[in-house]
Design a protein around this nucleic acid. Structure first.
Lengths: 338, 338
DNA sequence: AATGTTAGCGTTACCGCTATCGATATCACA
DNA sequence: TGTGATATCGATAGCGGTAACGCTAACATT
């Protein structure tokens, strides 16, 4: 059945075996019109039994179209982007388009390289997390002849389309909630990755929100590297040791606030009695903990879905689409920790 | 700066602007030999300022080589595969090869479609999780003219190369550890996704390990869908309600055992005093919990690294590489929960 | 009978880039 | 001065498909 010695099987081989021209075989396999049922069946049968895999490189070059959507995210470990992807996939599932993922590692230079690589494949769309890019990246995106959607964030100037939430506002809103509940001795724990722009915006918004009501941060801690429960736990311990009278901590990620909760559990502190906790993202790991932690839902799935729909929409349209910018409102859930 | 009205910039345009032939421009941009320093610099300069992005579709068709490695995993949400990816990326980082990820959703049909799509781009390698595939998938992989590496699992018959651990043995080993510590009233909680073959193998091995010492499972519970802390917590609660005298539970995933721990914390049960817990994978979320949970390290990162190295090795070699099968030994850590 | 219509298929000309081979210029050295 | 070696570059011919258009046979229409 499988002579692996056989030379690579080409469309012309399939065509010859089916006794039709290359063109007819091509049409048959792609399901386009102008092929009789009988011929199509014969070609398909031959292709299947011989294990023909079409060469999409040649096909795409010829047809000048690539059914891929490039998706560039900072990380896949961080719990947050897989859900954006899953939103994208669910929308694309019913179309001929397929997502292709690239990882930029929270570094603009790496991002530039990844996007260049992606665009060199001439995809049907580019979805990229964040609004901050190198100058060269912005140029590439502006010149790309495919729709570009920047996602997650709306605080800035998008090159093309844009779907996200305002992290500045998210920080402000959480500050308002915390203040409304009477907390005044407040700490912040967040990443210091210089390029996690969204975490920084939440921080800035949070500070603004506090200061609007005359409150200043009592303590803050910044960490390098990826967020983890472990890190959240350690930094919470340190901060509470320094400031035993803190009554609330805001974290730049749920993963970190879970760590905070773990510390409190271990140290016998009551939440929110001794200290209130709040995170960000509404990650799935919040479900099933001894206590529901306060958080802001970052609308990750919906962001992915909407971004994919914009790409589809741009594909349908014959004119280049006018820039769309969708700002979602991230709901805060207070849980039992505030 | 950016006339977006400009027609798409082609290599021939760059060449013309630089006053050289297309061929020389091509060589200059790809860094191959036979170009003077001065010429190369000029071409690069022009390409950069004009934002030229090479068309890799045309390039690959012409050179009959694609610098991509296809990686097919069942899921990106499950915490486990991102680390395999990260192992792959770290090895590929220093080479011209780039990983491209496809998601099969724990379904063989979807896997078949994803792999077909991947192979249609004629990648330099294919790394796929698991040994179980549809007949058509096996045929495609066997005929593919690139190295194929099946990863994660070694219990079965690989089509090409193989790197992984024995999940059967991992289950057996954990059974031995549990029995050695005197536990006899044992429960199991695991996925019932019919196609999570590795979870099933661990289960089978576990049962074997118990029965070798005359012990049978006291209770078992299977769930559909992705693993989560929430689910682990609920099922643990149910199981302990049915069998309050259980003294140990083995989970098919760490995420689930964390849920078990959460239940115990909430219900005031001591671990391992009232009930011992053990999971699988050695996920990062185990770090920072109130208690170190027992687990088996699935060697995910190393598996990724080794798979990538095999692809590189096959690329160097001129003969098709003889099948390599690497079986890693997953270390068990007992933590404080056994 | 002449003409139009349509389904089904084939021929031609590329898509944008690179492998290959040959051409030319330059320089070292006998 | 001639000879070859070396460095640098260009013309040609594809890579494996598909868009566009052309052609034919068979049937419908007038």
């Amino acid at each position: 059945m499988t002579k692996s010695e056989t030379k690579k099987l080409l469309l012309k081989d399939v065509a010859r075996l089916a006794g039709v021209s290359e063109m007819t075989a091509s049409r048959a396999l792609r399901g386009t019109a102008d092929v009789s049922k009988a011929t199509r069946a014969r070609v398909e049968e031959i292709a299947r039994t011989h294990g023909y895999v079409p060469n999409r490189i040649a096909g795409s070059l010829s047809s000048q179209s690539v059914n891929l959507v490039a998706v560039v995210v900072p990380s896949l470990n961080s719990f947050v982007f897989p859900e954006v992807l899953s939103g994208i996939s669910s929308v694309l599932k019913e179309t001929p388009l397929k997502p292709v993922v690239g990882v930029s590692g929270y570094e603009l230079e790496e991002e530039e390289e990844v996007i260049r690589e992606m665009l060199s494949w001439r995809p049907s769309g580019l979805i990229v997390a964040g609004l901050e890019h190198s100058e060269a990246t912005r140029r590439m995106m502006a010149q790309a002849d495919c729709p570009v959607v920047e996602v997650m964030d709306v605080d800035g100037t998008p090159v093309g389309h844009c779907v996200g939430i305002s992290h500045l506002q998210a920080g402000r809103d959480m500050a308002a909630q915390i203040l409304a509940r009477g907390y005044r001795r407040i700490g912040f724990i967040g990443t210091k990755m210089p390029q996690d722009f969204r975490a920084r915006k939440r921080f800035d918004g949070f500070i603004e929100g506090l200061s609007e009501q005359g409150v200043t941060l009592m303590d803050r801690e910044h960490y390098a590297g990826e967020s983890s429960i472990q890190t959240g736990r350690q930094l919470t311990a340190q901060m509470l040791e320094r400031n035993p009278d803190l009554d609330c901590i805001y974290y730049s990620s749920d993963v970190m606030s879970v760590g905070g909760l773990m510390h409190c559990l271990g140290a016998g502190l009551s939440v929110p009695g001794d200290v209130a906790l709040a995170g960000f993202n509404n990650l799935q790991i919040l479900q099933g903990l001894p206590l529901d932690l306060a958080t802001t839902d970052a609308c990750r799935r919906e962001i992915g879905e909407r971004a994919a729909k914009i790409v589809l929409q741009a594909r349908e349209a014959e004119k280049p689409l006018a820039p769309i910018c969708t700002r979602l409102s991230p709901p805060i859930s207070l849980g039992q920790s505030l």
